[in-house]
């Protein structure tokens, strides 16, 4: 049963149209919402939360209409905004407890769950210091904690990796994956960075200029092309020759060699060829389509 459903959802502002007859369905799992800045991702989330009214069209969350049953939806939803939203003079614990109370948890449950959640997102002694002194990574964790503390059925994360360094990004992505895999909470995560969503989403929705470009599962996007890419440190020609004489069709793609991956024997052949030539094997990976390729595909005018 789809968790989120929109039907011809439109949102017009005086100057621009943020969403244009968007119709999507989101199943439980991790759903990535991709689009450039200004594509309409944040607007969609705000409409789903009832923070902003749609100009036309319908949207429902858990089967409840967003305009009529807003409060009931908001009881079961967590929201992590893109912008800074944390007061500087309270500690993380105080703040998350307060937010838990604002979500309807009784005082004791609020305190208990806050302690749990802060541990899950990775805030330990820091949680007692004022938020004003936190690093960006810690602040993002607090934002995530307040979205999760009331055990929602779905969380909407708006650009959660903004401002994080590469290690912080990885940590956040892993955490997001855990939210679905271990906590069982559906995640709607937006980003303008395609590479990240590849790694963690089950389903990807691509929006551009408020219209839907593509909506399909990640595995479809990144079908293995059944090819093997290798890159060696030297003597690429010699290695290619060895492999060709072993019966494989070798294509040269710049510094890389592309081999058809028919069975596991190919790995053995590569290993032997490389060892025989005495060179280093720099890269050995399966060739895949990347999400970025769809933009190339679909910007040719192929719409929904």
């Amino acid at each position: 049963m789809p968790v989120i459903q929109t039907e011809e959802l439109t949102k017009r502002f005086p100057a621009t149209t943020a969403l244009d007859r968007l119709s999507i369905e989101v199943e439980p799992g991790v759903v990535g919402l991709v689009g450039a800045n200004g594509a309409g991702k944040s607007t969609l989330i705000k409409i789903l939360l009832g923070l902003s009214p749609a100009t036309s069209g319908r949207a429902s969350v858990f089967g409840l209409d967003v305009t009529e049953d807003g409060p009931q939806i908001r009881e079961r939803v967590g929201y992590m905004p893109e912008h800074d939203c944390l007061p500087g003079d309270v500690s993380a614990t105080e703040f998350v407890v307060h937010m838990a109370r604002m979500s309807g948890l009784p005082p004791d449950a609020a305190r208990e769950r806050t302690a749990d959640i802060l541990r899950h997102v990775g805030l330990y002694e820091e949680r007692y210091r004022p938020i004003g002194g936190y690093s960006t990574g810690m602040k993002q964790r607090v934002k995530l904690a307040q979205a999760l503390v009331h055990d929602p059925e779905i969380v909407m994360l708006d650009e959660p990796t903004n401002g994080l360094d590469p290690v912080g990004r990885d940590d956040m992505l892993l955490l997001i994956r855990r939210i679905w895999a271990e906590f069982g909470i559906t995640v709607l995560v937006t980003s303008h960075l395609l590479g990240e969503l590849e790694r963690i989403s089950d389903h990807v929705v691509v929006i551009d200029g408020g219209t839907l470009l593509r909506s399909s599962s990640t595995s479809e996007f990144t079908r293995t092309s059944q090819t093997l890419l290798i890159e060696v440190s030297a003597e690429a020609d010699a290695v290619a020759a060895t492999l060709t004489s072993a019966g494989l069709t070798v294509k040269r793609d710049g510094a890389q060699l592309v081999l058809p991956l028919d069975d596991d024997e190919v790995y053995d052949l590569v290993r032997d060829a490389v060892a025989a030539e005495g060179v280093g094997l720099i890269r050995l990976e399966q060739g895949r389509h990347h999400i970025s390729e769809i933009f190339g595909e679909d910007q040719g005018g192929v719409g929904r």
Binding site: P106, A109, H120, G122, Y124, H150, F183
Partner: peptide, 24 residues
């Protein structure tokens, strides 16, 4: 633990009461 590591003690669902608008 160093803050980069996610600690796994297990997530507990919340089945308790959810107070409505008035109480909030």
């Amino acid at each position: 633990q160093p803050s980069g590591v996610i600690h796994d003690i297990g997530y507990r669902k919340y089945d308790g009461p959810r107070l409505g608008r008035a109480r909030v």
